[in-house]
């Protein structure tokens, strides 16, 4: 019971981090937020009712390494290499984003209540946090134009799906996690290459410059 209680405390930090990510323009802060979310999502199975075997323990630890160290470090390296500190290219202002985020958190809570998901594997906040992460990631993808922030938003969305998926598919746990990992690892890696190419072809990472192919 205590473990589940701790899980909900961790998830409330994740919810706060989403709020924070909607109101910041600093890239390093954004990366740290996605690291926090990635770590909480990776350790979630430890706190749930399912018993842990040695295999799943090793798997969880490797996911933690990749989500918590490898991917953020590689994005951080790109940011350092390009010498960008702030991402100021936005479609929706920070105050409006923050207001939307608050609505999103409330809406996610109501939705999980409506679908009787307030006690999902013993955790009260798990489903609503997952919905907030998925929808929040989607919102940031539309509201921000900086390519790095868009990649981070995509990772936030993946974190949400992972949070929902990992405990659900206890039987097929490995394959689901493997899939998400492949997605995040390879997807982000290729996006990283694209980021460098955008930087080389244009002066900054504002995706509004990619407008040659409009009808």
């Amino acid at each position: 019971m205590d473990m589940i209680y701790s899980m909900d405390i961790l998830l409330s930090f994740v919810l706060l981090s989403v709020l924070f990510s909607f109101s910041t323009s600093r890239l390093v802060v954004m990366i740290r937020i996605v690291v926090l979310q990635g770590v909480v999502v990776s350790v979630a199975p430890f706190f749930l009712e399912d018993s842990m075997t040695a295999g799943t323990l090793v798997f969880t630890l490797s996911i933690l390494t990749i989500r918590g160290i490898v991917i953020p470090w590689s994005i951080y390296a790109v940011v350092q290499k390009m010498g960008i500190k702030r991402a100021l290219e936005i479609n929706v202002g920070y105050h409006a984003s923050l207001f939307f985020c608050l609505l999103l958190i409330v809406g996610a809570q109501m939705l999980s209540l409506k679908f009787n998901m307030m006690d999902f594997r013993g955790s009260t906040l798990m489903v609503s946090t997952a919905i907030t992460l998925i929808m929040g990631g989607l919102f940031l993808l539309m509201a921000r134009r900086n390519a790095i922030v868009m990649v981070l938003a995509y990772m936030m969305m993946e974190n949400g799906i992972s949070l929902l998926g990992a405990p659900l598919s206890a039987g097929a746990h490995t394959i689901v996690e493997f899939g998400i990992l492949l997605d995040v690892l390879a997807g982000v890696m290729i996006m990283g290459i694209m980021l460098q190419s955008i930087q080389q072809k244009y002066v900054n990472l504002d995706t509004a410059q990619l407008r040659k192919l409009k009808e």
């Binding site: 995509y154 799906i161 929902l164 659900l168 899939g179 190419s197 072809k201 040659k212 192919l213």
Partner: peptide
């Protein structure tokens, strides 16, 4: 490697990745 190719690839990767993430959610 042209700017047009870059734009097309960026759109392709981003939109399809988000789409595929939705399919993952559906599978879950």
């Amino acid at each position: 490697g042209t700017p047009r190719a870059l734009e097309a690839t960026w759109k392709y990767l981003l939109i399809c990745s988000v789409g595929i993430a939705m399919a993952l959610l559906g599978s879950v």
